[in-house]
Design a protein around this nucleic acid. Structure first.
Lengths: 189, 189
DNA sequence: TATAGAGTAGACCGATTTGTATAATTTTAT
DNA sequence: ATAAAATTATACAAATCGGTCTACTCTATA
């Protein structure tokens, strides 16, 4: 028995927070856009921060599923999968309504490392890195952890650069650098 | 004839915006922390957004001065200067009260590309890239613009990764990748 | 048919938001 | 020294903030 109102709230809030920011978007706007009553919101969530947490966790699930699935479909070898990360990323960039990484955006507004919103974002980033490290291990990289950290750095850099919009073709650029790093780390295999 | 009150407001606002975000920090808090009267603020600035713009422009000046000066002092050859970017960056990361790049943080809260706050941030990023491109040209890189874009991407990636805090030693990592890219681009000289 | 759970609309709360207005006081320049 | 400018403290406005609460409606199931 899932609640459609709850889903509707999360999805509406996600879109608004992603585009306009977390502090900039008020509860009332979310209610108006979703067509849900205020009481219902506070029936499902303790507070606005709790709703934000739900949005981030939902985004985590969706994004990670999308991430992993696209890796499965795209590459055959682990090395190809590592590279295809940047193809998936490029598709993300060119999709409509791209406003960077919502977790990065959230951390920009919640810098206090002790608040749950911050830690959830940090954990997500760690999970993605570990996912990449698994692929690097599969690809027999000499130092899979280091390669994962490197590719993560490229990913973040491309995402933020694309968000700013002052420099173009970030995903392609990150991909090219990734080729160099992957070949370097997997030269033995 | 510079206004001390104006300077005080900008610096106080800079600290608060940088740590807590732009929407999260209200005018009243800035006034309280700076010890300046509200009328004085609106005598110097049209609005809160105008104050934010002043903060960003001030940050632009300071950061760019610091950036260029540290490059002058550190490296001797253009190639060394390019690399020393990441030493300067590492110092920045380890300084107290690091909360990422204020321009990136601002863009996260003001995604609308038509608002001045967004464009000022974008222009800043472009200026830094062009500064790096100048060094790359000095270093006789085969494609100085491409090298500048690559190093900018590394810089952004390291900054955001450090801000999140899930992966350590981002500046050193970016530096190591930079060595590879610089040597590749300047192999002829 | 009766009941319980979930949702709705909207009033209401106190606090806070950006920004204006007023009047007294201090600083500055000539 | 005097006039002008700048700054002060504070009250005020209108809107919005997150959140609580009441009263009413709808629907599913026992």
């Amino acid at each position: 028995m899932i609640s459609y109102k709850r889903e509707k709230l999360i999805e509406t809030a996600r879109q608004l927070f992603y585009q306009y920011g977390f502090h900039a978007v008020g509860i009332d706007l979310i209610l108006k856009k979703s067509g849900v009553a205020k009481k219902t919101l506070y029936n499902h969530f303790y507070s606005k921060d709790d709703l934000i947490l739900a949005v981030l966790r939902r985004n985590d699930e969706h994004f990670r599923n999308h991430f992993v699935r696209s890796l499965e479909n795209r590459g055959f070898s682990a090395k190809e999968k590592l590279l295809s990360i940047f193809d998936t990323t490029e598709e993300w960039f060119t999709s409509s309504q791209f406003h960077g990484c919502i977790f990065i955006n959230a951390i920009a507004e919640y810098s206090d490392r002790s608040v749950p919103i911050h830690t959830v974002c940090k954990e997500y980033k760690r999970t993605i890195r570990d996912c990449i490290a698994g692929l690097a291990r599969e690809a027999n990289a000499s130092d899979p952890n280091e390669l994962a950290d490197q590719l993560s750095l490229l990913l973040e850099g491309a995402t933020v650069t694309e968000q700013v919009g002052a420099i173009r073709k970030s995903a392609e650029r990150a991909r090219e650098i990734a080729i160099i790093l992957i070949n370097r780390a997997c030269s033995l295999s």
